Every structure is written in structure tokens, then in C-alpha cells.
Amino acid sequence: MQIFVKTLTGKTITLEVEPSDTIENVKAKIQDKEGIPPDQQRLIFAGKQLEDGRTLSDYNIQKESTLHLVLR
């Protein structure tokens, strides 16, 4: 499924993921596309910060959901 990741600069990254993918996994995909190390990434969905060990389905993230990427 496709999800979108919006950065603070207003750029939107499109990722191909599975509901069973972990947040860690998603961060690795963002690193592949954008070169941002996962340890600098914070992903936010519905106002919650997403934890590395959880999966997209844990957070009920469905196709075409938009996550927000904050760098630390």
C-alpha cells in the first residue's frame, strides 16, 4: 500500500509499505529515499509519536495515510 510522509519543509514523500511493516522499517525506507538517518527521524500520526517496534497496523495506519516527519 502507499502512504505519504510530509516533511517540515512541506515536501511529501510517497512510500510503498505493508501494514505489517514496523515503524523502524518505514524509517529505513525514508533513509533510502531521503538520506536521513533513522535516529534523527520522528514520525507523527494523528498527533502521536510512533514507536520503532510497533507496526503500521498497530496504529491503524491505512493506505494513503499521511505521516508527519520531524527531525531531531
Rank of each mutant, 00 (worst) to 15 (best):
M1W: 12
M1R: 03
M1P: 02
M1N: 03
Q2W: 11
Q2I: 07
Q2Y: 11
I3N: 00
I3T: 01
I3S: 00
I3V: 06
I3E: 00
I3W: 00
I3G: 00
F4T: 03
F4S: 09
F4A: 04
F4D: 02
F4M: 04
V5G: 01
V5C: 02
V5A: 04
V5Y: 03
K6I: 14
K6C: 03
K6W: 07
K6M: 10
T7D: 15
T7Q: 04
T7R: 04
T7S: 11
L8E: 04
L8G: 05
L8M: 13
L8Q: 14
L8K: 15
T9N: 14
T9A: 04
T9L: 06
G10K: 11
G10R: 05
G10W: 14
K11L: 14
K11A: 08
K11P: 12
K11W: 15
K11M: 15
K11H: 04
T12I: 04
T12L: 11
T12M: 06
T12N: 07
I13C: 02
I13P: 00
I13A: 03
I13S: 13
I13K: 01
I13V: 08
I13W: 06
I13R: 03
T14D: 13
T14R: 12
T14H: 05
T14W: 14
T14L: 07
T14F: 09
T14Q: 09
L15D: 00
L15G: 00
L15R: 00
L15E: 00
L15H: 00
L15Q: 01
E16T: 12
E16Q: 07
E16N: 11
E16P: 05
E16H: 15
E16A: 07
E16C: 02
V17K: 00
V17Y: 06
V17A: 13
V17L: 11
V17S: 14
E18F: 14
E18R: 08
E18V: 10
E18A: 05
E18C: 02
E18G: 11
E18Y: 11
E18Q: 04
P19M: 07
P19Q: 06
S20I: 10
S20E: 13
S20G: 04
D21Q: 04
D21W: 05
D21E: 11
D21Y: 10
D21N: 10
T22F: 15
T22Y: 05
T22P: 13
T22V: 15
I23Y: 02
I23V: 15
I23M: 15
I23L: 12
E24Q: 08
E24W: 15
E24V: 13
E24I: 09
E24K: 12
E24C: 03
N25E: 05
N25S: 07
N25P: 01
N25K: 07
N25F: 15
V26Y: 00
V26N: 00
V26Q: 00
K27H: 03
K27Q: 03
K27Y: 09
A28Y: 15
A28R: 10
A28K: 04
A28N: 11
A28T: 15
A28F: 15
K29Y: 09
K29G: 10
K29I: 09
K29L: 05
K29M: 11
K29W: 11
K29A: 14
K29H: 11
I30P: 00
I30F: 03
I30K: 00
Q31S: 15
Q31Y: 13
Q31V: 07
Q31C: 02
D32M: 04
D32P: 03
D32E: 05
D32A: 12
D32Q: 10
D32F: 06
K33T: 13
K33G: 07
K33P: 03
E34A: 09
E34G: 07
E34I: 14
E34W: 13
E34D: 06
G35V: 03
G35E: 04
G35W: 13
G35R: 14
I36N: 10
I36V: 15
I36W: 11
I36E: 03
P37H: 06
P37A: 13
P38Q: 14
P38W: 15
P38E: 07
P38V: 13
P38D: 09
P38K: 11
P38T: 07
P38Y: 11
D39I: 10
D39P: 12
D39M: 06
D39Q: 11
Q40E: 11
Q40H: 09
Q40I: 04
Q40V: 10
Q41I: 10
Q41C: 02
Q41L: 06
Q41V: 14
R42Y: 15
R42P: 01
R42V: 10
L43E: 00
L43N: 00
L43K: 00
L43D: 00
L43I: 08
I44T: 12
I44M: 06
I44V: 09
I44K: 11
I44R: 14
I44S: 07
I44Q: 12
F45E: 02
F45K: 05
F45R: 03
F45L: 06
F45C: 02
F45W: 08
A46D: 12
A46G: 09
A46W: 12
G47L: 15
G47D: 09
G47N: 12
G47C: 03
G47M: 08
G47I: 02
G47H: 07
K48M: 04
K48C: 02
K48G: 06
Q49Y: 11
Q49A: 13
Q49P: 06
Q49E: 10
Q49T: 05
Q49W: 08
Q49N: 06
L50P: 01
L50D: 00
L50E: 00
L50I: 13
L50A: 02
L50N: 00
L50R: 00
L50V: 12
L50G: 01
E51S: 06
E51Q: 15
D52I: 06
D52G: 04
D52Q: 12
G53P: 10
G53S: 12
R54I: 06
R54H: 08
R54L: 11
R54C: 02
T55A: 10
T55V: 09
T55R: 07
T55I: 09
T55L: 15
T55N: 08
L56Y: 01
L56P: 01
L56G: 00
S57T: 04
S57I: 07
S57L: 12
S57V: 13
S57K: 07
D58Y: 07
D58P: 01
D58T: 11
D58W: 14
D58N: 08
Y59W: 03
Y59F: 11
Y59V: 03
N60E: 06
N60D: 11
N60F: 15
N60S: 06
N60A: 09
I61A: 02
I61L: 06
I61M: 10
I61G: 01
I61R: 00
Q62K: 12
Q62L: 11
Q62G: 07
K63A: 05
K63E: 14
K63M: 15
E64H: 13
E64V: 12
E64L: 05
E64P: 03
E64R: 14
S65V: 07
S65Q: 13
S65D: 04
T66E: 08
T66C: 02
T66H: 13
T66G: 03
T66P: 03
T66Q: 05
T66I: 14
T66S: 06
L67G: 01
L67K: 01
L67F: 14
L67C: 01
L67Y: 01
L67V: 09
L67N: 01
H68K: 03
H68T: 15
H68A: 13
H68V: 08
H68N: 10
L69A: 03
L69W: 02
L69R: 01
L69S: 02
L69M: 07
L69P: 00
L69G: 01
L69K: 00
V70R: 04
V70W: 12
V70L: 07
L71W: 04
L71Q: 15
R72A: 04
R72M: 09
R72C: 02
R72G: 10
R72W: 09
R72H: 14
R72V: 08
